[in-house]
């Protein structure tokens, strides 16, 4: 599974979206989904940490990562490269 597919899977799971709901790289997360809040962010980080067995430091987390599906996928790709 590549970084984008993995990211889509995490988002679908955290926001309980159906598999048919479109999620492409440009789909907005923060501001795009009303229920995307601080708890969603922490849940997503946990999913990434557990799936890749990595640690994500506080200073790696910023609002920019969660702007779109694509920005989050880039972050996940970076973590996969380190794992």
């Amino acid at each position: 599974m590549n970084a984008l597919e993995l990211t889509q899977k995490f988002i679908r799971s955290c926001l309980q979206l159906s598999a048919t709901e479109p999620l492409d790289r440009d789909t907005a997360l923060l501001g795009g989904f009303p229920e995307f809040n601080s708890l969603t962010i922490t849940t997503l980080i946990v999913e990434i940490e557990e799936a890749l067995d990595c640690e994500i430091a506080d200073d790696e987390i910023s609002g920019e990562i969660f702007e779109t599906v694509g920005s989050l996928a880039d972050f996940v790709a970076g973590k996969m490269a380190q794992a």
């Binding site: 809040n37 601080s38 708890l39 962010i41 922490t42 980080i45 946990v46 940490e49 506080d58 987390i61």
Partner: peptide, 24 residues
């Protein structure tokens, strides 16, 4: 990991309010 995840909720809530973030 669990405690970090728990405390991150506070850090993320502060971040969303635009306040100076506390580290876990």
């Amino acid at each position: 990991n669990f405690v970090t995840q728990l405390l991150r909720q506070r850090a993320a809530a502060l971040m969303q309010k635009g306040e100076q973030g506390e580290t876990t």
